[in-house]
């Protein structure tokens, strides 16, 4: 044994062990302090996280909401073959129109020479991609020439966008043609 050492043989080991223990305890306490309240009570996530998600703003208000304030459009829209078409895919999300029960802004309308591509996203036949029995499909140019209509006609000149066959039916009645054949006929292209 050398007598000239001031520290005991085990001092450094004891000090290190105490330091490590101290760091561990501090770490555990710190973790308890910082842990989100109630963490783990309902699963391994922060309680309330699902409520944060549930409280996200609803931006598409759905047709019922739109039609509640637009009774005539409601009448037209629900009576026609476009009853299942969402208002908001043409007019944009309702939240841009009404907020807190007040008018927030005007909605865009699609009409005239920009309407063709919008209609053809569903009715376009050129891609030949859709099940034939799901929806009426047309090739725009064939449709126009086939019905002996000017080639630069826009879709909404004959078809009311909310009730596509309304005017057609009325015109048919006007000139005395049968409303439609019994049982329908397979759609022709």
């Amino acid at each position: 044994m050398q007598p000239d050492f001031k520290s005991s043989t085990h001092l450094h080991v004891i000090r290190l062990a105490l330091t490590i223990a101290g760091v561990l305890v501090a770490g555990i306490l710190l973790r308890q302090a910082l842990l989100p309240a109630g963490y783990g009570t309902s699963g391994r996530y922060r309680p309330g996280a699902e409520l944060d998600e549930a409280n996200r703003t609803v931006r598409n208000l759905a047709n019922d909401a739109c039609l509640a304030c637009h009774p005539l459009i409601r009448k037209l829209h629900l009576a026609g073959t476009h009853a299942t078409v969402s208002c908001e895919i043409c007019h944009g999300p309702g939240v841009d129109h009404v907020q807190d029960g007040k008018l927030a802004g005007a909605m865009p309308t699609v009409a005239g020479d920009v309407i063709g591509p919008v209609c053809l996203r569903c009715h376009g036949q050129v891609a030949r991609l859709r099940p034939l029995d799901s929806i009426r499909m047309v090739s725009a140019s064939d449709h126009l020439t086939g019905h002996r209509v000017r080639a630069d006609n826009d879709c909404d000149q004959c078809h009311h966008v909310h009730a596509p066959m309304k005017w057609v039916r009325e015109a048919r009645e006007m000139v005395g043609l049968a409303a439609e054949p019994e049982g329908g006929r397979p759609w022709t292209n």
Binding site: H147, R148, V149, V168, E180, G183
Partner: peptide, 15 residues
């Protein structure tokens, strides 16, 4: 202008 449209046939069945 739109006379020919009258030949168009509607699908049957409710939506």
């Amino acid at each position: 202008v739109i006379g020919g449209s009258l030949l168009l046939v509607l699908p049957a069945g409710a939506v």
